Amino acid sequence: MLPVFGALAPIFLLILFGHAIRRQEIVPDSFWAPADRLTYFLFFPCLIIDELAKASLGDLAVWPMSAAMIGGVAAATVIMLAARRFLTMDGPAYASVFQGSMRVNTYVGLAGAKALYATPGVTLAAVGIAVVIPLVNILCVVIHARFGRDAKGVSLGSVLGGLIRNPIILAAAAGTWLNLSGVGKPPVAGPFIEILGRAALPIGLLSVGAGLDLAAARAAGMGVAIATVTKLVLMPGITALLGMLIGVQGLTLTIAVLFNALPCSASAYALARQMGGDHTLIAGIITVQTLLAALTIPLVLALYR
């Protein structure tokens, strides 16, 4: 566990550093929104393209790993739906708790996979992004449409259209095509994309830290606890058990567990605002999960790697 914690510690220190930068106003608040946008639309896709283009996909059992990850999400969904009748909270709060139990922070995931397992880890994490992100986005939109205060024009159709245009998913498709077609890492463009990709994780992790809301975390209640236990404990545990049952092992099992053990992403806040969820509650969930993940991820990996 200590080697894993040591490898992941710089990632969470960078997140805390990002929070300190914003709290001390070292850069103006106006910096963070364009930094997020540039990372999401340019740096992060470049990182995924670069890693997938040069990976040895034929040596990795991606389909069983994907099945384990989807199974973990499906099991957590069933648990949360079954728990609805026992939870004494209104619809918007439930929608945010559900979302906090499903969404994954891909910046933390790729950074962790890279720190622990280098290129093969990043490759499998990129596969996880392509498999899990569309699924959880659709589930969260459906739940918000059912339980949120209002959808403000956001429909399942518009979300599906957004997924098709999602730069992360498009990057995963482009990198996979470069790999499987035999083109690999193209000259000139390849090194250029690689340099841009190097900026993704430091800027992305700083932005994660800048978005932490400690006031919301201090007001955390039962909803935060339910989402945190489901996301950081139950989902990775179920993923590990399903993976072992269907024969997933080695690095593929480890990355499947790691990916489903990630804290909730900051993008959950935007969806809660758009579709009438409890955005204060989801801010608390994001903050608490991000801080606790520094302890839970090493523990989960020590148990199931």
Rank of each mutant, 00 (worst) to 15 (best):
S155W: 04
K152D: 10
G161R: 14
V224H: 10
I255F: 05
A272C: 11
L253E: 00
S155D: 07
A172P: 00
P236S: 11
V154C: 04
G211Y: 10
L251H: 05
C264L: 03
V183G: 05
M235K: 06
A225D: 04
S265I: 01
A174F: 04
V233P: 00
A174S: 00
G204V: 10
A216S: 15
V248A: 08
V229Q: 01
A220D: 07
A189D: 04
L262R: 02
A240N: 08
S207Q: 12
L245A: 12
V154D: 09
S158P: 03
A227C: 10
L163D: 01
I226R: 02
A215E: 14
A268G: 15
L201Y: 11
I255L: 11
G250V: 05
S265L: 04
V208P: 13
E194P: 06
G277L: 07
A266D: 02
A200W: 03
A270G: 07
I246N: 13
A171M: 05
L258Q: 06
A189W: 13
D213C: 12
G247V: 02
L156H: 06
M275A: 09
P187I: 05
L212N: 11
L180Q: 14
L205T: 14
I255T: 02
A173I: 07
S265C: 08
G190Q: 06
A216Q: 12
A268Y: 06
V233H: 03
V248L: 12
N260W: 01
I246T: 08
L206H: 09
G153Y: 09
N260E: 14
L251P: 05
L206Q: 11
I238A: 15
F192H: 07
L234I: 15
S267W: 03
P167V: 01
G182N: 13
A215M: 07
S155V: 01
R165P: 02
G250I: 05
I193Y: 02
G209T: 13
K231S: 09
V208Y: 12
Q249G: 08
D213H: 13
A240D: 08
L214Y: 15
L206I: 15
V183N: 06
M235I: 06
G182M: 13
A199P: 11
P236N: 08
T239W: 09
L170I: 09
W177D: 03
P186V: 10
L258S: 07
V248F: 03
L234D: 02
A200R: 05
I246Y: 07
T252R: 01
T254E: 12
L241G: 10
L160M: 15
I255M: 05
K152E: 09
Q274Y: 04
G250W: 11
I164D: 00
G247W: 01
G221Q: 00
A171S: 09
E194G: 14
A215T: 11
G237D: 07
T176V: 08
V248C: 06
A219E: 14
L178T: 06
F259I: 06
L241M: 12
K152G: 03
G161C: 07
L253I: 00
M275Q: 13
G204A: 13
G204H: 13
L214Q: 11
T230L: 08
A172H: 00
L170E: 01
I246V: 13
G209L: 14
M235R: 02
F259W: 10
V229N: 00
G161D: 11
I168L: 13
C264P: 00
G209E: 12
G223K: 05
P186L: 08
